[in-house]
């Protein structure tokens, strides 16, 4: 049995250490991690993948903690991925989301992993797709993804999550902020957290005003819910909205369509990996300098050389 197979088996048996190791392989973006994701992919597709996004300081981690506990009380097993930014200067990161998730991460049915963006823009890390696949294959019923504190362009989470919850808080900006394109267009559920603060109703109205501008034609109209995550107020309504949205996705066929899109994605990834590997092999090939010379002098064009690179790689495989 290969390393990948035995780790995949440990992951299916929900061994914490195997899950943690697998996530590290995927984060390192090396061959073992890629092989692992491909091995696990057919086992995934069952978990409800939930994205939690919003500006820094609106209470995303606290809300994730509450949602995880509420889903646990229904008997679900929960995987959490929390993404924080890497420093553009040192490449290091401080991953502090566990601080606000103390209650849920203590639970045996919750597995939580902190991911750094490692230079990737868009609100997630490059490893997030693989990490979600792994947790899904490990049998977690719901996977919660907390994005970095997002502005208006960190919308990548909507490609990975079945249901995206956009969290806002009162007093963070005027109506213009709410109308801006981007983050507000990706939410299927809106949460106004810290609803005990002044201006919460105003924020709800601002979001509703924006949503009614263009989404009347949709058959899912995003609910706007008020929570005080710190005191666990409003959590149940968010859970109900998530369940409604899941049912809507399944009935409308979108759930299956997303799985099909992911299948396309993983094939694309595999093709790209293969091509990169072929290129790497070509560059260390004894003929590389000659090909270089051919293209430079116009004896052969680059596409012709590319064909030869691919042909050689195929013969090698």
């Amino acid at each position: 049995m290969t390393d990948v197979d035995s780790l995949a088996q440990g992951i299916q048996h929900q061994q914490k250490r195997a899950i943690a190791r697998g996530l590290s392989w995927i984060e390192r973006d090396q061959q073992l991690g890629k092989d692992l994701v491909r091995t696990l992919f057919p086992l995934a597709g069952h978990a409800h993948v939930i994205g939690i996004t919003g500006a820094p300081g609106v209470g995303k981690s606290t809300l994730v903690n509450r949602l995880a506990l509420a889903l646990r009380s229904q008997g679900q097993r929960i995987g959490i991925l929390a993404v924080d930014p890497s420093s553009p200067f040192s490449g290091g990161a401080i991953l502090g989301d566990r601080i606000r998730m103390q209650d849920s991460v203590m639970d045996e049915g919750v597995f939580m992993r902190s991911l750094a963006t490692r230079g990737h823009l868009g609100g997630l890390s490059r490893a997030t797709f693989g990490a979600v696949t792994l947790l899904d294959a490990a049998g977690f019923d719901s996977v919660l993804i907390e994005t970095v504190g997002a502005g208006q362009s960190e919308v990548e989470v909507m490609q990975l999550a079945h249901s995206t919850v956009v969290v806002q808080a009162p007093g963070l900006g005027d109506d213009i902020q709410a109308i801006k394109a981007g983050i507000l267009e990706i939410g299927q559920i809106f949460v106004v957290n810290k609803a005990d603060h002044e201006g919460a109703d105003h924020t709800v109205r601002a979001i509703r005003g924006m949503l009614t501008l263009g989404l009347e034609h949709l058959d899912w109209f995003p609910p706007i819910l008020k929570t005080v995550a710190e005191r666990d107020e409003g959590t149940d309504a968010v859970i109900r909205a998530l369940q409604d949205h899941r049912a809507y996705l399944q009935e409308s066929g979108q759930w299956a369509r997303m799985r099909a899109d992911q299948t396309t994605h993983i094939i694309e990834l595999a093709v790209r990996d293969w091509a990169e590997e072929a290129l790497r092999a070509a560059r260390s090939d004894a003929n590389w300098d000659k090909w270089h010379e051919d293209v430079l002098t116009g004896r052969r064009d680059a596409a012709h050389v590319a064909t030869e690179v691919v042909r050689r790689r195929l013969a090698w495989d």
Binding site: S87, S90, A93, I94
Partner: peptide, 16 residues
């Protein structure tokens, strides 16, 4: 310490 390790290029999980 957490900040120094981050500035040293490491990923630091801090749990409070």
């Amino acid at each position: 310490i957490a900040r120094a390790l981050r500035d040293g290029g490491m990923e630091v999980v801090y749990t409070g």
